[in-house]
Design a protein around this nucleic acid. Structure first.
Lengths: 252, 252
DNA sequence: CGTGTTTTTGAGCCGTGTCAACGATAGTGG
DNA sequence: CCACTATCGTTGACACGGCTCAAAAACACG
């Protein structure tokens, strides 16, 4: 599936995309680029003339800290544009890197911005995306601040699983190949690897969720989301989430 | 100063505001409302038809958690519109409340959205705001996750002080009446009141910053920002920050 | 002046980090 | 196809940062 189509598909999760808007997006010049795991797309402090769109695999953004820890501040699924913020601030304050082997599209920031500005509907759609990103950020703040390790971890798993479902990444059996290492989960949650491991064990022993050979399987969605205090509506995946909620693999 | 002017002033921090845009904003119907400390503007889960603009005082947004803790996820200075996110998602997932006695303006969300959409420059300006909000969120994630209590607290103080300066809230002597209680700082930082208190003492004893009778005084900006790992550029207060940097009260 | 809130301090405990080691798994080159 | 090696996951022991409980001091307000 070409880049523009993936983008369109994702936008369609949140509302109708008109033929006009589709044609605008299809006109974008997008250059493919393969990334290996851990490959850096954009370095903290750099200025960038290009935007990135995720085609397959996952990207994440992190801030490297003086105490040589790193904080992962966001995770990006196929169809997403991780660096929209460079629209108005060409310097970025975090490093964008590939979580696993990924295929991304590189496009001119100016061109994308121009294209978006040609359609009020597209402007709305992208602006809306950044607001949803904000809602996700707030949840991460809460997870890292006051939810505690178990609820925080559960919340992250719920969020990632829901977003993975929306990106159509679940297998028939409802599992998802979680590309994060436990170290990376810890970097996102502000926990040590060791404690992430223990927390995952607790979730496993409580029959809430299990990661087996890299695949995340939610054993009991009600239990997991209760532990997390997770309510997916902030992700605004209305229609799509509904598709999964009614498909009998345990969402809801 | 009328509401629209405060809004214009703030937008002007980030770039020129044309007369056309000003006239659009001045046409907005804004109803004043006084708030006492802790008064709730918008409750978690509510749907809102109105937007709020802060005129004086401060607002904050928090998420209440099942473990009866609360996480403050954002703080809002005069000139800001805390609930822009309701543009595309009428339900809000956090409670918006007044930190101290405040004056806000209430305006129709639909009308504001309409007004903004009439000017590409305004659209850009507001979208840009939400992206800056995102940059702030990322910093809070990092503070709550991996910076540790001392650096996290210092970072929050740096951020609030810088934003207070941009909102022209500093006294001649460079102090600012920090309206947060230590409990609220803790709610923002994911720390207990007790520990916030101890951390502030450490900052005080290190001659970095001191809160005396509710006023925050930065004793040594270089030291405080070094502890925090703070770099104000993510706030994009370019010109304005420069004004303070050269005013000899210790910023830079 | 009295009452409620906020700040400050102490003492003790618990969650989470650190260190260290081993096991599992996957990729690599012979 | 099998060592070899690197990375990741898992577990235990122990230390420490930050939480809880509790109470006093400072402050704000009517």
């Amino acid at each position: 599936m070409p880049f523009a189509e993936r983008l369109i598909d994702r936008l369609a999760l949140f509302g109708e995309v008109t033929e006009f808007d589709k044609s605008l997006l299809r006109r974008l010049k997008i250059r493919p680029k393969r990334l290996v795991a851990d490959e850096i797309v954009l370095e903290q402090g750099e200025t960038a003339e290009h935007c990135v769109i995720v085609q397959s695999g996952m990207l994440a953004a992190c801030q490297d800290l003086p105490n040589n820890k790193r904080q992962i501040v966001s995770a990006h699924f196929p169809g997403e544009i991780p660096d929209i913020q460079s629209f108005f601030s060409h310097r970025v304050y975090h490093t964008l890197f590939a979580i696993n082997e990924a295929l991304v599209g590189i496009l001119s920031r100016a061109e994308l911005k121009q294209t978006i500005s040609e359609s009020p509907a597209l402007t709305d759609a992208f602006w809306r995306q950044t607001l949803i990103d904000g809602a996700i950020f707030r949840q991460w703040i809460t997870s890292n601040g006051n939810r505690g390790s178990l609820a925080g971890t559960a919340h992250l798993l719920c969020e990632l699983m829901t977003r993975a479902a929306a990106a159509n990444l679940l297998s028939n059996s409802g599992t998802w190949t979680l590309p994060f290492t436990q170290q990376q989960l810890g970097d996102a949650l502000g926990l040590s690897v060791v404690h992430v491991n223990r927390t995952l064990r607790t979730l496993r022993e409580g029959n809430a969720a299990i990661i087996e050979s890299g695949r995340l399987r939610v054993l009991d969605w009600a239990k997991l989301s209760a532990i997390a205090g997770f309510d997916q509506s902030y992700l605004q995946l209305g229609t799509h989430a509904h598709r999964f909620r009614t498909s009998g693999i345990g969402f809801g």
